[in-house]
Amino acid sequence: MAKQGTLSGITLKGSAELVAEFFSFGINSILYQRGIYPPETFTRVTQYNLSIFVTTDPKLKSYLNNVVLQLKEWLFQCTVQKLVVVITSLETNEVLERWQFDIECDKTASENSTPREKSIKVIQDEIRSVIRQITASVTFLPLLETACAFDLLIYTDKDLEVPEKWEESGPQMVNNSEEVRLRSFTTTIHKVNSMVAYKKIDTI
């Protein structure tokens, strides 16, 4: 949490780390909240002055770590534009929910440019409010009754070469969706906007 606490400003590298960290916790939260994985496989940790549930399943953990690592690299290169968590029903393969995080990168920031002035605390507050919103989304999100799986999609710049463990995919939009914008946060180098699209299910 306070890894960059000693630095006086935000560098590109630091910003990338912050954002990647956010995604790591954010994705875990989503998985927990939406019940993609059984709740007992999650454990509580404290981050951003919140208690967030992160998975204990080793396979999932390593998968997420890889993604985050890759993401960090891309963030550093400023080549990533969006990260999307797609929740699909196992049985019907239908996209039920779609969490989209738009990343705006300030391309003028480079490795050696001077660090920007923004307090880490402020950034963390912002991140906290986003994660809180994710939790609060239960007010309007429909219950996911069926067993679901999740996918991670990352939108990058066009000419980026696809790394080994990744493959190309379609956008996987939700049919007939309701969309809700969530809060955003910025590190002055990277800005992340969040929104969720869900499918309104009729009562049985």
Binding site: P142, E178, V180
Partner: peptide, 15 residues
């Protein structure tokens, strides 16, 4: 919706 989330009963079919 976020501010009043405690006051909102979640619906099975979503809102």
């Amino acid at each position: 919706w976020e501010l009043c989330k405690e006051n909102v009963q979640p619906l099975k079919q979503g809102r």
